[in-house]
Amino acid sequence: MARTDGDSWDLASSVGATATMVAAQRALSHREELIDDPHAEPLVRAVGVDFFTRMLDGDLRFEDVDPRFTARLAAESMAVRTRWFDQMFLDAAASGVRQAVILAAGLDARGFRLPWPDGTVVYEVDQPEVIEFKKSTLAGLGATPTATHRTVAIDLREDWPKALRDSGFDPSQPTAWSAEGLLIYLPGDAQDRLFDLITELSAPGSSLATEQVDDVESFVDTRSKELTDRMKDLGSDIEMSSLVYGGERNDVVRYLTDRGWAVTASPAREAHAANGFEFPEDGLMAAFGDLSYIRATLGS
């Protein structure tokens, strides 16, 4: 089903299912001891999507989707991504930042697994159904936050800055922001609005981590459709072509730079190499060849 302006989802449907897919890859990465995320697998299993449960149980092989892909390659790719965002938060905390905001948090468990300094407040923003599911599931698992943890149950298309402030957020203090795996699910104008609001809410010294995909159309091309069809044959309901927004959008590096952020970008191939991994040049990962990991710091 194609996206609409007022659509909603849970963690088993639409955009929410992609968050569960990412968490399943984090679970594989944790198993390979590439990252530390013990909460990923129980969260995915609690969602209960058969496709992802079979993936974790080994009943579904990545090679069944693409003969050139493996569970290890999936784990390495997710380790690169997870480490990038983890490191931004850790570096910001080391510099004295004590306020973090995870936008479109999905099954992100950084508020429960990163070694936050005393006095840190971590805010998670996502749709109410997503927030409630994760809160109740983590509580049932006996998971304990490693910082003061506050959830903000609101759609990013609504007035989330007000909801964030109402939850105690202080825009006069530097903040570490993440917008992970989010931009392709926003229209171009919504992407601009998101960065404008983050800038308005950020004091000097704030940090931001996100990604840029130069060609969103790669998620809807013939190769992507072939892979989607193979995944459907194996039981997946995810169809990326109906979830992402194509069309023109502003370059992330340029847009943030123009608004006072000092920006660095690490192309996916370079990020893999920096982590000691080889980037797969064809097959399932080829669509991510033009992805860059973005990190920015707001000046005075």
Results as ranks from 00 to 15, higher is better:
Phe195Glu: 00
Phe195Trp: 01
Phe195Ile: 01
Phe195Arg: 02
Asp196Cys: 09
Leu197Val: 14
Ile198Leu: 11
Ile198Asn: 01
Ile198Thr: 01
Thr199Phe: 06
Thr199Met: 06
Thr199Val: 09
Thr199Cys: 07
Glu200Val: 12
Glu200Leu: 13
Glu200Tyr: 00
Glu200Phe: 07
Leu201Trp: 04
Leu201Asn: 04
Ser202Trp: 07
Ser202Arg: 07
Ser202Asp: 06
Ser202Leu: 09
Ser202Gly: 08
Ser202Pro: 07
Ser202Lys: 05
Ala203His: 05
Ala203Val: 05
Ala203Pro: 02
Pro204Ile: 12
Gly205Ile: 01
Gly205Trp: 00
Gly205Lys: 00
Ser206Asn: 01
Ser206Glu: 04
Ser206Phe: 10
Ser207Lys: 04
Ser207Trp: 11
Leu208Asp: 06
Ala209Cys: 13
Ala209His: 03
Thr210Met: 11
Thr210Asn: 10
Glu211Ser: 14
Glu211Asp: 15
Glu211Asn: 09
Glu211Gln: 13
Glu211Met: 13
Gln212Met: 11
Gln212Cys: 10
Gln212Lys: 05
Val213Leu: 11
Val213Lys: 07
Val213Arg: 02
Asp214Tyr: 06
Asp214Gly: 15
Asp214Ile: 08
Asp215Thr: 13
Asp215Glu: 12
Val216Tyr: 10
Val216Leu: 07
Val216Lys: 12
Val216Trp: 09
Val216Thr: 13
Val216Pro: 06
Glu217Pro: 00
Ser218Arg: 15
Ser218Asn: 10
Phe219Asp: 08
Phe219Ser: 06
Phe219Met: 11
Phe219Thr: 11
Val220Leu: 05
Val220Pro: 00
Val220Ala: 14
Val220Tyr: 00
Asp221Tyr: 03
Asp221Ala: 08
Thr222Met: 07
Thr222Ile: 08
Thr222Glu: 15
Thr222Trp: 05
Thr222Asn: 03
Arg223Trp: 08
Ser224Ile: 08
Ser224Trp: 02
Ser224Met: 11
Ser224Pro: 01
Lys225Asn: 04
Lys225Trp: 04
Lys225Leu: 15
Lys225Ser: 13
Lys225Asp: 12
Lys225Gln: 15
Lys225His: 10
Lys225Val: 13
Lys225Arg: 15
Glu226Thr: 07
Glu226Tyr: 07
Leu227Gln: 10
Thr228Arg: 02
Thr228Pro: 01
Thr228Asn: 05
Asp229Ala: 15
Asp229His: 02
Asp229Pro: 00
Arg230Cys: 09
Arg230Pro: 06
Arg230Gly: 06
Arg230Leu: 11
Arg230Val: 14
Met231Ser: 12
Met231Pro: 00
Met231Tyr: 00
Lys232Trp: 08
Lys232Tyr: 04
Lys232Cys: 09
Asp233Gly: 15
Leu234Thr: 03
Leu234His: 04
Leu234Val: 03
Leu234Asn: 06
Gly235Val: 13
Gly235Phe: 07
Ser236Ala: 14
Ser236Leu: 11
Ser236Gln: 06
Ser236Asp: 05
Ile238Glu: 03
Glu239Trp: 06
Glu239Lys: 10
Glu239Thr: 14
Glu239Asp: 14
Met240Asp: 01
Met240Gln: 06
Met240Phe: 14
Ser241Phe: 07
Ser241Cys: 06
Ser242Leu: 12
Ser242Tyr: 04
Ser242Ile: 02
Ser242His: 11
Ser242Gln: 12
Ser242Gly: 08
Ser242Thr: 15
Ser242Trp: 03
Leu243Arg: 03
Leu243Trp: 05
Leu243Thr: 05
Leu243Ala: 04
